[in-house]
Simulated scan of single mutants.
Amino acid sequence: MKIDLIAGARPNFVKIAAILHAIKNSDKKFDYRLIHTGQHYDHNMSGSFFSDLNIPLPDITLESGSGTQARQTASIMTGYEDLVSKKRPDLCLVVGDVNSSMACAITAKKSNIKVAHVEAGIRSGDLSMPEEINRILIDSISDYFFTTSRKATDFLLNTGKSKEQVFFVGNTMIDTLRRFEADFKKPEVWDTLNLKNTQYLVLTLHRPNNVDEVSNLVKILHIIGDNSRGLPIIFPVHPRTAKILNSQKLSLKNVFFTAPLSYLEFNYLVKNSKMVITDSGGITEETTVLGIPCITLRNSTERPETVSIGTNELIGTDSENIPEYLDKLFEARWKTGGIPELWDGKSGIRILEELSRL
C-alpha cells in the first residue's frame, strides 16, 4: 500500500510522529511519503519538530504559507492535486483538524483516492471554530476512521459509519509525549527567570474570541496575573497573538512573553508547572496524562474526556471565572485526574495493524 502522510501544522507533527516511529519499528513494509504542506513555516512551529521528534525530513514540501482560510486551503489543494496527478497513492492519511488535513482529504477524495482520518469523530459543537468545520468535512468523506475515544467511535457509528470503517486506537499525541518525555529540555527562560518546579504557570492563547479583541486579551492577562499569588506566568506567544501584543504597551509585572518554544522545551515547562491555562485542545490531552491541573478558556471542548476523566476544567470564555479556579488550585482543592482508555503510547502500532489488515 502506498500511503501519503499529511502534516502541515504543529499538532500534525506530534501525531504523525507516532505513526512514523511505528512504521520504523514494524516488521511490515509500508511505502509512504511524508508531505509537509507548509501551513506552519516558522521554525519553532514546525521546523524544529523533525529534529526534536526524530522523524525524517519531508519527502515533499508544498510551501503553502500563510493567508486567509480560503487562500491557504486553495494553495494546499492545488499543490497536492499536482502531486497526486503525477504519482498517486493508494491512501491519503490525514491527522487532526487543521486546514492541511481538510484540504488534502478533499483533494484525495476528488481524485478517487481513499482517505483515512486519525483523530476522527471528535466534536465541540462550536461551528465558529474553523477546526470544527474541518472535522465535519473530513469525517463526511473519509473511508477509514481512527478514534481517540469510545465516545468518538460511537458518534461515528451513530452517524452511519460501519464497524468495518471505524477503529478505536487511542491517542497518537500521547504516543509522542511518552516516547520523548525523558528528553524534555529546559528552555532558556527557565534560567533567565530562575524558575522552580511547580512555582510558575504556563499560559497559551490563540483562539479569536480570546485574542482578537485587544481589550479582552489584556483583561485576561491582568486577571491571571492578579490572581496567581505572585507566581510568574510564562506565555509562549503564538505568532497570531504576537502581532496583537506588539501594538500594545502593557504593564504586567509577572506575565512573561516568550517566542514559540520547541516541542521538547514547551513540554518541559508544562510538566514542571503548577498549572496550565489554555484555549488549546491538544494541550489539555498532554496535561491530563502528565497530571497537571489545566484551565480551558472555552465554552466547549472536542476532548470531553480531559474534563470527565482528566485534570482539565472547562470554564468558559468569561475571564471573570478565572479567579475561582485559581483559588481552587492554590487551596489544594483541584481534582485528581486519571488517564483515558488506550492513551498508553501504542496508538501508532494499532493504526499500522489496521492498515496492514486493510
Rank of each mutant, 00 (worst) to 15 (best):
M1S: 06
G8Y: 03
V14D: 02
V14M: 08
V14K: 03
K15I: 02
H21Y: 10
H21V: 08
A22S: 13
N25H: 11
N25G: 10
S26N: 12
K28N: 12
F30A: 03
L34R: 10
I35R: 11
I35W: 08
I35E: 06
T37I: 05
S46I: 05
S48G: 11
D52I: 09
P56L: 01
P58A: 04
D59N: 12
Q69M: 05
R71M: 07
A74M: 02
S75E: 01
M77L: 10
T78M: 07
Y80M: 04
Y80L: 04
S85N: 08
S85E: 03
R88D: 02
P89Q: 08
L91M: 02
S100K: 07
S100N: 07
A103L: 08
A108P: 00
K109C: 07
K110M: 07
I113C: 09
K114D: 11
A116T: 06
V118Q: 07
V118K: 09
G121D: 10
I122M: 12
N134R: 12
S140Y: 07
I141N: 11
I141H: 08
Y144Q: 09
F146V: 10
F146N: 09
T147P: 10
T147A: 15
T148K: 12
K151S: 15
A152H: 03
T153V: 13
F155K: 11
L156Q: 14
E164A: 13
F167P: 08
F167Y: 14
V169W: 11
M173T: 15
R178T: 10
R179P: 06
R179C: 07
D183N: 13
V189I: 12
D191E: 06
L203A: 00
L203D: 00
N209R: 00
L217K: 02
K219P: 00
I220Q: 05
L221N: 05
I223L: 09
I224D: 03
L231I: 02
I233H: 05
P236V: 09
P239T: 11
A242F: 08
I244D: 07
N246D: 11
Q248K: 13
K249P: 00
F257G: 05
F257K: 13
F257D: 05
A259N: 13
L261E: 07
S262M: 11
Y263F: 14
Y263L: 08
N267E: 01
L269R: 02
V270L: 00
N272Q: 09
N272P: 05
S273C: 10
V276E: 01
T278C: 01
G282D: 05
T284F: 04
S300C: 10
T301R: 05
V307E: 05
I309R: 06
G310M: 01
G310W: 00
N312L: 03
N312P: 04
L314Y: 04
I315V: 14
T317K: 13
N321A: 15
I322W: 06
E324G: 13
L329G: 12
E331H: 15
I339V: 15
I351G: 15
L352Y: 14
E353N: 15
E354T: 14
S356D: 15
